[in-house]
Design a protein around this nucleic acid. Sequence first.
DNA 1: AGCACGCCGACT
DNA 2: GTCGGCGTGCTC
Length: 624
Amino acid sequence: MLFALVVLGLAVEGPFDYTVPADLSKKIKVGARVWINFRNQRMLGYVVKLAKKSKIKHLKPILELLDHTPLLDKNALLLAKQVSEYYCCSWGEAIEAVLPGALRKGRKVAGLIPNGDCPEIDSPWIGNKKAELPSATLIHDLDGQDRWGIYLEQIKKTLNSKKSVIIILPDISAVLNAREIIKTKIDAPVGILYRKEPNELEEWLRIKSIGTIVVVGTRSSVFAPVKKLGLVIIDEEHDSVYKQEQTPHYNAREVAFMRSRIEKARLILGSTAPSLEYLNLAKKNNLRYTFIPRGRDFPEIKTIDVKFERRGAKKKNIILSKYLEDSIASNLDSGGKTLLFLNRRGFATYAFCHNCGMALECPRCNINLAFHFEDSVLNCRYCNFKMQAPKICPNCSSGYIKFAGAGIERIESELSRIFAQAKIKRIDFRGNLNLKDADIFVATSTIIKEVNCNFDLVGILGIDNSLNRIDFRSAEKTFALLLGLLRLSRKKIIIQTSLPKHNCLQALLTKNIDIFYEKELSQRRELRFPPFRHLIFVKLRGKREERVREASFNLFKELNRVNKSRDIKIISLNPGQPSKLRDNFYWQLLVSADSAKRATKFLKINLKNFPHSGIIVTVDVDPV
DNA sequence: AGCACGCCGACT
DNA sequence: GTCGGCGTGCTC
């Protein structure tokens, strides 16, 4: 008698035992999909082990075997297992992150070629032995393009040794761009992987069937089913899009690290502005560090302290300082291109009643609606709720609506008033940017990803907002923005700020990039923040505010009571950010630990026993 | 996650 | 009496 241990794409750990019907016992393999009856429902399961006996009394049989050749090889199953143990999800949920949508829904595929033999997985493990670090290199490339030379050289080297390559990029347009580079420079099959690609399944199967291939893709392509993986490249390693917003909350960069360790592949991380996590590893000599300096002179960099900039007698917040305005004017005169940067879309972030002062809020979220001038629409950036902006206050019916918190639409209209003769263009979505189209460009952070464009003058607005966020990474994120803007600038950068002494700005002004990293790292070390310790959010959400609050307090108390580990600390309990989203109320517990895996294990055990009717609990390890 | 079971309050 | 809302626990 043969038994199959099966996991499911649900938030239940498993695995669950099933009997294997005699006619399937020769055909069934670890890594194959099966239809099973689970709690009287026909569900898709993944075979993770075959056994000669089972401790469970009343077993149900496997209903159908979908794959005569396993979809997942030993390494893929192991990677999913490690993901589930690090990111606090079930093994089955992690497996579903690996597979294309069609395969998760039970689509059968024909003509799969086995990936060699597939030995059984005996027991869960990771980090039982001292983890071996993969061979990794961090390329800190200030100008942003030179690293491709290194990439291409390493890709060729890997292909020559008959091994495959995965290149991971932040977004689809970067993927398509990279594909063109690869296709012209590399003579090898190229695969493209991103979720929502129309031929996702066909492409996935093709990648699985080809011996040596270069796969280019977004976050999920870290799981690409290449046979012999020799190299993984993560471009713009610091980008937060590598973190998945839904369960499992994996970060493709860390998964790439895990995968390189399993498959003994090399890892290259490239970035204009490396994360502190990987910069710290470099400083500890745990990975190779290559710095590619700016290949041209630094622009002149100047900060304007807006505390001392008051135009006229009025105290109202100035948008453009006199100095910046004059600089734009002289740049216009000499025919130069100007970029004004403000990381805030729309016209205003805040619409309120002149009479009663009430701010217009999203009905589903605890968030002020942003105002877009062109179509006169109020929009929630979280749930995308839209409404026509009312003329008079819906609350007191007497006041008219005023706007505050300038976005780039506001800057644009301000500029066209001041520089009536100039051509002005707003960039708030990624598109084809042509420098010929305007004299002054007003842009949000989407501009950072542009390649091959340079501005004579770059004016940076609203950087204080970015620095003042209640997020321990705010300085790091701001610095990454500034380095991105440095890359786009040719002659001069003007930064309007009330915090000119901040490390971010001092590092730029002194043209000594490393002092930012040194100071920020030493602060993080002192405060026991990442990368010196892991942070974990335990998020609770539900329709009823009071219940979510109560459950969170109970959970906080309970976790503190049962926690015997000196490593794990349950730090705080706070309303979510925002506290209400899509009609759900949020609370979050913050946990810290030296070992994410240990904390995850602790949470898995203790969340299981926690009663939470009507409340959904999710765990986010290493939030970004 | 989802679903059944069972306990309590409001009501034809 | 019984219908149904919601808390609790289990799924091989």
